[in-house]
Simulated scan of single mutants.
Amino acid sequence: MGSLSGRVRDELWRTVSDSIGAGAAVLAYPDATEQGYTLLTAGERRRIPVDFDGLTLVALRPEEALM
């Protein structure tokens, strides 16, 4: 396992986000937050991150909302 600089991570995420198309992607990386990490998502997905008083929780969207 390796470690990327923030600059490289951000550029890779920008490339993934721009080319995701109909898919979905998740990026979790260590960060100085209450949980110790940051969670980023791209694309249409059923699970969505929700900020709850500084904590990132994952909520499920109804399947009908995706259609």
Rank of each mutant, 00 (worst) to 15 (best):
D31Q: 04
V50H: 12
L66E: 06
P30H: 07
P30T: 12
L39G: 04
E44W: 10
R45G: 14
G6T: 04
A25F: 02
W13P: 00
E34V: 13
E34D: 13
L57M: 09
A59M: 01
R9T: 02
G6F: 15
T41H: 09
A59Y: 07
F52Y: 12
E64K: 11
G2V: 11
V58Q: 03
A32E: 08
D18C: 01
A25W: 06
R45C: 12
R14I: 00
R7P: 00
V26E: 01
T15Q: 13
T56W: 00
V58S: 04
P62E: 12
P62H: 14
G23V: 01
G54L: 08
D51T: 14
E63C: 03
G2C: 11
P49C: 05
Y29V: 00
P62I: 09
T56P: 15
I48W: 09
D10V: 00
T33H: 05
T41R: 13
R45K: 14
E11G: 03
P49M: 04
M67H: 13
A42M: 06
E63D: 10
A22W: 04
L40A: 09
G54R: 03
R61C: 10
E11D: 03
R45M: 13
S17T: 09
P30L: 05
A42G: 08
A28Q: 04
E63P: 00
L57T: 09
L55N: 05
V16Q: 07
L39P: 03
G2Q: 11
L27W: 02
T33W: 01
D10T: 01
T41I: 10
D31I: 05
D10C: 01
P30F: 09
L57D: 11
V8E: 11
R47A: 15
